[in-house]
Design a protein around this nucleic acid. Sequence first.
DNA 1: TGCTTGCTTGGAGTGCGCTCCAACTCCGTA
DNA 2: TACGGAGTTGGAGCGCACTCCAAGCAAGCA
Lengths: 154, 154
Amino acid sequence: MSATQQVTTPEDYEVGKYSIGEVVERTGLTAHTLRWYERIGLMRHVSRQGPRAGGDGNGRGSRRRYSDHDLDWLEFVGKMRLTGMPVADMLRYAEMIRLGDETRAARRELLEDHREEVRNRISDLQSCLLVIDYKIETYADAERSNDDEHSQVG
Amino acid sequence: MSATQQVTTPEDYEVGKYSIGEVVERTGLTAHTLRWYERIGLMRHVSRQGPRAGGDGNGRGSRRRYSDHDLDWLEFVGKMRLTGMPVADMLRYAEMIRLGDETRAARRELLEDHREEVRNRISDLQSCLLVIDYKIETYADAERSNDDEHSQVG
DNA sequence: TGCTTGCTTGGAGTGCGCTCCAACTCCGTA
DNA sequence: TACGGAGTTGGAGCGCACTCCAAGCAAGCA
């Protein structure tokens, strides 16, 4: 994919600045998780630098170097995961990006579907919040008037 | 909340009206899940009715009869689970109810803590929503001007 | 030279919340 | 009396998203 480079390259290839440990610090993910993301294909072509770096620097056992680009992607992945997007869907999304422009519409659709889910989730949470509020109010009332509340288990 | 009893008993014991199948229909839970909830202690003393119903109707192999009270509890559990309260916490809560009035304050605290988490969750989701919106907008822009977007995987 | 630290790998293990299985028992209808 | 359907049990299995393990390597330092 590219020749032995220490520094810069054709723009779509960038030897990263960050070791896995630094990425752990910046993202809050564990090194395990970072490697796992790579294994499953959620994050490909993390550049390498190290002892077996013959040819393209991607030999077995060589060390990962994450680029700013990689960090951006991880941040995006993090947001999506935080909103409950399944890893499988992220994978589909990542795959589509790799396939290029033809998948644009599908990617957008995936995001729009997900947005809808997030919106629904928010409104679910808000309605549950009302129930919790009510319940807490019940406890507060009972504390004021040493009375009994309705709930019980059995 | 519910006092609609067909067959009445000493007040804290009520033979339910609903078979497990009916509860499945009403709650959307599976029979597996209902039995599992009972096994783990999230729901105790579901009354029984059946062949081996000697004495208290709770012999092995006899059939469950859920009361309106049980349905109320399941509904509450459902709300809490929907907001992401771990089953373990629900279990603690259920256990505290069993222990009676002395646990009131602790129960209230548990709910208040959970409320806080739900609120945080909602605001997380809302901020992620902005990111998703932005991303979708990027796709929409690109569609308009056939340009390239910043994101890629590797 | 030995020791520590940080990293590498493939594969196995974990925790959660169910979900299913095998083998059985009743009940109602024909 | 036979049969289908709904229910019972303890325990095993599953899918997800990690999380950890064992064994090894390379660099830096005393």
